[in-house]
Amino acid sequence: MIDWGRTCLITVTMLGGLLTLASLLIWVERRLLGIWQERCGPNRVGPGGILQPLADMIKMFTKEDWIPPFADKVVFVLTPAIVVVTTLMTFAVVPIAPGFIVADVNVGILFFLAMSSLAAYSVIVGGWASNSKFAFLGSLRATAQLISYEVFMGLSLMGTVALAGSFSLTDIVEAQRGLWFIVPQFLGFIIFFIAGLAETHRAPFDVPEAEAELVAGYHAEYSGMKFGMFFVGEYLSITLLSAMIVILFFGGWHGPVLPPVLWFLLKTSVFIALIILIRGTWPRLRFDQFLSFSWKVLIPLALINLVVTGGIVLARNG
């Protein structure tokens, strides 16, 4: 039985919270990068610069919303929406605290994987619809990258699924009550983390939008709020990735003393910070090395991880 009122409330809270968080991340990322580069970052708008996202938003909204005359207009306009919608949809299956979930489906992981694959279309289609060479090159790279990383992203999670014995994210979190899966699934975590970074086009895997070579890659032609949506979509993806890591490997809301929601948010924040730190530290990979790394190293590792985990689980249960 679905409690509609409760579900609506959670949905609205999640939506509001997520969008606020995403825009706040704009400031957080710039601020953190600033600190780590011995700068200040944005510190002028509001106390400590916290209103910077607001200023950015005003700027974005008031900027000329330009659609290039050579673009495929309908697709061009639709694309930014796809990013945001697919990412937000995924949050429907994210258990933040016991009972704090929009839709506790029993195939949560599959839903997550499906949605992240859909999000890939935004990148591919956006670059295609822009009809310009840099955008097209960016989307070509994105396509190759997504095909490569989609494969073992799923594979790397199968160890966790095997351990938990369920595709439901709530069940997986519950299964970590004793031991976080980071311990048995360390390899899986590493592979998933890398794949997640690639999936969100974050440094050091941001080759599809490498500004040094491709201006801004697939969203080179986007301006105004359409660009803003790509921007927000990226921060939503970071949040989602961090949340998934916490859920799958770091025990979700489990933790002593503090209430589960806080634990969850705290753990997620740490990973968000880690992703930003990585961006501030590691240089971008060369595209061919990056692809061969995926096919030649990570997929075999993921398979090994799956086989070993499966074997152990079989042995224990058998």
């Binding site: 600033g34 600190i35 780590w36 580069q37 011995e38 700068r39 200040c40 730190l277 990585i278 501030g280 530290t281 590691w282």
Partner: peptide
């Protein structure tokens, strides 16, 4: 080396900005 890099950058949290 990768982790060391992360650590070096992370240490900057505690230094004064030059700005």
């Amino acid at each position: 080396d990768l982790l060391l890099g992360l650590w070096i950058v992370f240490k900057r949290t505690f230094t004064k900005p030059v700005t």
